[in-house]
Amino acid sequence: MWNYEKRLEFPVKISETNAQLAQAIATQYGGPDGESGAAMRYLSQRFAMPYKEAVAVLNDVGTEELGHAEIVCAIVRQLTRDLSVAEIKESGFDKYYADHTLGIYPINASGIPFDAMTFQSTGDPITDLTEDLAAEQKARTTYDNLLRLCAGHADVAEPLKFLRSREIVHFQRFGESLRIVQDHLDSKNFYAFNPAFDGDRGCR
C-alpha cells in the first residue's frame, strides 16, 4: 500500500519556457530508460525475489522511482505550461500538442509511447539484478546526455543532477543486493539452480 506525500524529493522551480528541452527530458518519464519503466521493473521484480535485503531494495528503490517520475513530469510541465501557439509551431512541439495539448503523457524523446517491453521481470534473481544494474547506468547516461543540452539552464539542470546522482546510488545498492544473492548460491556455479524457482536448495 502507498501513501502520497505532497512534495517533490528535489524541488523544481523553473520559470523559463522551453519546449525543445521539455521534449528531450520527457523521455525520462516515458522512455526506454526512464523513471516509469524503472518503477515498474523494480516493483514487479520484488515478488519473486527470495532474499529479504534484495526485496527491500527493490521495494524502496521502486518507490523512489515513482517520486522521480513525478520530478521529471514537474520539469516538463513547468517548461511547457506557458507555451504560445507560435512557440509550439516554432519549437516542433506541434506534433505532441496535436495529441496531448499541454497534458503530460509518457513518451520517449522521439514521441513513441511508453512500452513495457523496455523492461523485464524474469523470476531469476541474478538476471533481474543484473538488468537493474544496467538500467541504472542507462538512466545515468541519459541524464548525462540531457545535462549537456541544459548548459546555461541551471534551474533545469539542478533537479536533473540530483536524479543522476540517485542512479549512481541505486547502482551501488543493486550491486550489494547481487552480492547478497550470490552469497546464498553455490560459489563454484552461481547458475547451478534458480533460488526463486528450484526451491530451497540454498540457505535463505
Binding site: 500500500m1 515478488f47 529479504k52 527491500a56
Partner: peptide, 9 residues
C-alpha cells in the same frame, strides 16, 4: 527491522 517482517505477498 524494515527488512525482517514478511512482505505482504
Amino acid at each position: 527491522n524494515w527488512i525482517n517482517e514478511p512482505w505482504p505477498w
